[in-house]
Amino acid sequence: MNWKDLLNETDRCLYCGNGYAEPVSWQAVLGLGEERRLCPACTDKLISIDALSSCPGCSRTGSPILCSDCRAWKEDRFWADHPFTNLSLYEYNSWMKELIARFKYRGDACLAELFTGEIARRLGSAAAEACVVPIPLSEERQYERGFNQAELLAAACRPVNILTRSGQAGKQSKRSRRERIGTADRVFRIDPVSLPDNKGFILIDDIYTTGATIRSAARVLYEGGAEAVSGLTLARA
């Protein structure tokens, strides 16, 4: 390591811990630029999903038309007249997989800070009008983990916990695709004490795989009188 490099490296990547130099710009001098906290090497591996070339219903990458999964959901009588779209921000590549594993399973809570700003920016004014609801964890799971990852991701959009989740269902990531879509068990409940006046809701979660979890929460909200529910997840598997 050259001492000149050490002098230049002003920042430390929040994920890989390597030092790097934030490029000098007028924005940074004036304090307008947002802190990135990821080194250039990690930024390269973080791949945003382009809304124009992904499924408008669930952000699945590949084609801009409604994907087969979303069409299958539409066939359900309930979803035929209750609109639900999900927006995912990043591709679930191997780098993202490792990052989410470290965040959720190892419990590195502060990694959420990498995304809170971007999530708030993408929600924009919608977050002010609607009520931002993180997908809850069962109490056992939340105790085990120490935090709810969806709540941390939504931290910059004033999340409201109006849902609760019962513990019988078990881990979603341990099930097969068929089991997930087929689970009709109602794991979510609206906590009646904290229901706000808003009629629009945005659900926040970490990963969208088949959509079973987030739609099951959306359904509970619709049945509780919501007028519009949509979803935002960090990654699209």
Binding site: D108, A109, C110, Q142, Y143, G146, F147, N148
Partner: peptide, 16 residues
């Protein structure tokens, strides 16, 4: 780093 811990219901420091 610091996070709001569901166990101790406080801001709890952890080792990264």
């Amino acid at each position: 780093a610091l996070f709001h811990c569901f166990r101790c219901r406080k801001h709890c420091t952890y080792c990264r």
